[in-house]
Amino acid sequence: MSASVNILNKVDRFLAGSMKTIIIAVIVMATFTMFLQVISRYVFQVAISGLDELAGHTAVWLYLMGAAYGTYERTHIKADMMHLFVKSPRVLQVIRAAAAAVSVVISCYMTTWAFGYIKWSILKHEVTPTLRLPTVIFQLPILIGAFLMVVYFLREFIDILRRGPQVSPVSEQEG
């Protein structure tokens, strides 16, 4: 039992670490890509093809990893108002669990949609217009991000069932 929990914790830390690494890498890359763009145009009077394309495309990794990390942290944008009307913790727990379940279902759909899209893209050998890189490199984050959201929404759902509606975000639990 404790061994499997141990492994789960390791996987968890690995995934969170990976997301963070990708985010930081994309931001650093985009910054320097844009800097290079400005310098090359303004100082050296030359255009380097495909810098915009590269920055715009890799940014998809940033967005989806950010979204997945937001699900992990449980800091998605919410507009919930039920706690204003419902005072029973039991009922609130059911509502929260149902909300998390809906999120699981939607992100599952997103995952299958993304899978179909990527399959199609690979089949058609789609490439980016300027650099002619396989577009699938930049579509993959949609699939991975969606899948991670399934996992983290599912975990939120289980947490709510086990511990009630007031589950604090992971980031706070860690201190």
Binding site: H76, I77, K78, A79, D80, I95, S107
Partner: peptide, 12 residues
């Protein structure tokens, strides 16, 4: 949305 589904997933 008012039931606490993240806004993004409600749009989904």
């Amino acid at each position: 949305m008012v039931n606490g589904v993240p806004v993004a997933m409600a749009f989904g």
